[in-house]
Amino acid sequence: MEKFNKLTGIAAPMPLVNIDTDMIIPKQFLKTIKRSGLGANLFDEMRFDKDGNEIPDFVLNKKAYKNAEIIVAGENFGCGSSREHAPWALLDFGIKCVISISYADIFYNNCFKNGILPIVLKPEEVDLLMEDSKNGENARISIDLERQIVQSSEGIEFSFEIDEFKKHCLLNGLDDIGLTMEKVSIIDEFEENYQKKMPWV
């Protein structure tokens, strides 16, 4: 997993609430057995018409946002299914950070497994960054994970909360499985006692 520390980039405004995983990556693209290549179909049914032509009004089709690395979104972003294809598609497109008021639980967790930082801010702070991001290439938003700060293009700073363990893993690009494997003897011991108490499991 890539390390995440600082990022300054173009942010795409997506004020719609409840942007769900079927919007982020429709199910016809879940048939892959790989993690890569999904960026081409990110937001497919919002981005392309049924003949595959770009819908010009859609934010990521606008010239100013083709290279967006951040999405500023309405609340409850990523609701719906557990498909990790959603963060895979975002990452493959080049999105490394999402800023919203809230996220669906599974999507939120999935982001961290892929080096994407989902930031939670207060509604008025998200509103301000949403307006800022409407300036496209002229408004770059900066993120400093170490300091837990988001900075608007005009230098206004907002701090955000993040779980210490998740922050540590992102900053260092750590793989969860490797970390847990170091605790294998603890798992062995737990399992042995547990099976004695609950042999039917």
Partner: peptide
């Protein structure tokens, strides 16, 4: 009982635990 992403599927397959 709850849903997990593919990275967590791999984590459970390998370790029978979840963080």
């Amino acid at each position: 009982a709850h849903g997990i992403g593919t990275s967590e599927v791999e984590h459970v397959l390998a370790t029978q635990t979840l963080i």
